[in-house]
C-alpha cells in the first residue's frame, strides 16, 4: 500500500485500520480467484483447456466470437434481461407491500399468513415444476415470457426480508403520518419505503440475480430455442459425452456482466438510513 493510499483515510491512520484494510482486501482477492480462473479458461482454445495454466499460453477471443456468432446468445440475453427485470419490479412492489403489512399492522391471522408465506421457501422448486408445467399447459402459458415469469412474481424470501426491515421503522413515524391525514397506501409508499432503501436495493439485487441464473423452470417451460434464457442456452454446451468447458466459461463470464452492473448501480443505495437519525430522541 502506498502513502497516497493511506492518506485517503479521513481520520489519522492507525496501524489497526491499515491491517483491517489489508486483510479485507486480501480476503477479497481470495474470493475472486475462482472467478479469475473462469475468465482465464474462457480465453483458451479447446485443446488448451486441460492445460490448466492460470495464464493461457495462447490467449484468444475466439470463444467470445463463437458465442455471439449465430445471434442466438443475444436473443437469450434479451429474454433473460426482460424477464428478470419485470419479475424484479413485481417482487419489489408486492414483497415490500406484504412485508410492510405483516410488520406494521396488527390483525387476526397475521402470524399464520407470515408462517404460511415463509413455508413456501421450504418446498424445493424441483417438486413444483411438474404442477406448474401442467398448469401452464392448461392455461397456454408454455413458451411465453409470462410462463417463465409467473412463479417468481411474489416471493416468500422477499416478504420475509422486507418484514424484518420494516420492523425497524419506528411506529411513531407512521402514526405521525396518519395524523397528517395521509392514506395508508401513501404512508407505505412515501414514508416507510424510503426508510428501507438499503433492504430494497439488496432485494432488487438478489431477485434480479436469482431470476438471471434460474435454470430448471425456464428449461421446463420453454421448448422454443428463441425463448431460452441465458442459463438454459448455456447448458447446450454440455452434452452426453463431452462438455465444452471453454464455452461454458465464456458464457458464464458474459452472463456475469449484467448482474455486475445491477450490483454496482444498486450497491451505493445500501447506505446508512440518514432519515432516521434526525428523528429519534
Amino acid at each position: 500500500m502506498s502513502i497516497t493510499d493511506i492518506t485517503a483515510f479521513r481520520k489519522p491512520v492507525r496501524p489497526v485500520r491499515v491491517l483491517t484494510w489489508t486483510l479485507l482486501a486480501m480476503g477479497g482477492i481470495v474470493m475472486i480467484m475462482p472467478f479469475l480462473f473462469m475468465i482465464s479458461t474462457s480465453l483458451k482454445t479447446p485443446d488448451q483447456v486441460y492445460d490448466l495454466r492460470f495464464i493461457p499460453a495462447r490467449p484468444t477471443l475466439a470463444n467470445y466470437a463463437e458465442l455471439f456468432a449465430d445471434g442466438r446468445f443475444t436473443a437469450w440475453f434479451v429474454n433473460s434481461l426482460i424477464t428478470s427485470t419485470i419479475v424484479t419490479a413485481s417482487v419489489l412492489f408486492f414483497d415490500s407491500l406484504i412485508g410492510y403489512t405483516l410488520a406494521k399492522y396488527r390483525f387476526r391471522g397475521r402470524g399464520l399468513v407470515f408462517i404460511a408465506i415463509l413455508s413456501t421457501l421450504m418446498i424445493p422448486t424441483e417438486m413444483l415444476v411438474i404442477p406448474w408445467y401442467v398448469m401452464s399447459s392448461h392455461m397456454g402459458w408454455l413458451d411465453s415470457y409470462w410462463g417463465i415469469m409467473f412463479p417468481g412474481l411474489i416471493t416468500g424470501f422477499g416478504v420475509f426480508l422486507m418484514r424484518q426491515f420494516f420492523g425497524t421503522v419506528p411506529d411513531e413515524l407512521i402514526d405521525a403520518a396518519r395524523i397528517d391525514g395521509l392514506s395508508e397506501f401513501r404512508i407505505w409508499w412515501e414514508i416507510a419505503m424510503p426508510l428501507v432503501t438499503p433492504a430494497l436495493s439488496a432485494l432488487a439485487i438478489f431477485t434480479f440475480l436469482g431470476n438471471w441464473t434460474a435454470f430448471l423452470w425456464p428449461l421446463i417451460v420453454t421448448s422454443d430455442r428463441d425463448l431460452f434464457t441465458v442459463p438454459v442456452g448455456l447448458s447446450s454446451f454440455a452434452s452426453e459425452n463431452l462438455t465444452r468447458w471453454e464455452m461454458v466459461m465464456t458464457g458464464a463470464a458474459v452472463s456475469t456482466i449484467p448482474t455486475l452492473i445491477v450490483f454496482i448501480l444498486l450497491q451505493k443505495y445500501i447506505i446508512r438510513g440518514v432519515v432516521l437519525s434526525g428523528l429519534k430522541g
Binding site: 493510499d5 485517503a8 483515510f9 479521513r10 485500520r17 483491517t20 484494510w21 479485507l24 482486501a25 480476503g27 477479497g28 482477492i29 474470493m31 475472486i32 475462482p34 472467478f35 480462473f37 473462469m38 479458461t41 440475480l209 441464473t213 442459463p231 448455456l234 447448458s235 454440455a238 468447458w245 461454458v248 466459461m249 458464464a252 452472463s255 456475469t256 448482474t259 455486475l260 450490483f263 454496482i264 450497491q267 451505493k268
Partner: peptide
C-alpha cells in the same frame, strides 16, 4: 472501511454473481 469500500465489497459479492456450474468446475 472507507478507502475503496465499494470495490472491496464487490470482490466479496462476485462469487454470488457467477453461475454454480462454472464455479463448481473450477
Amino acid at each position: 472501511v472507507r478507502f475503496m469500500h465499494g470495490f472491496i465489497r464487490a470482490l466479496y459479492f462476485v462469487p454470488y454473481l457467477t453461475t454454480a456450474v462454472a464455479m463448481a468446475w473450477v
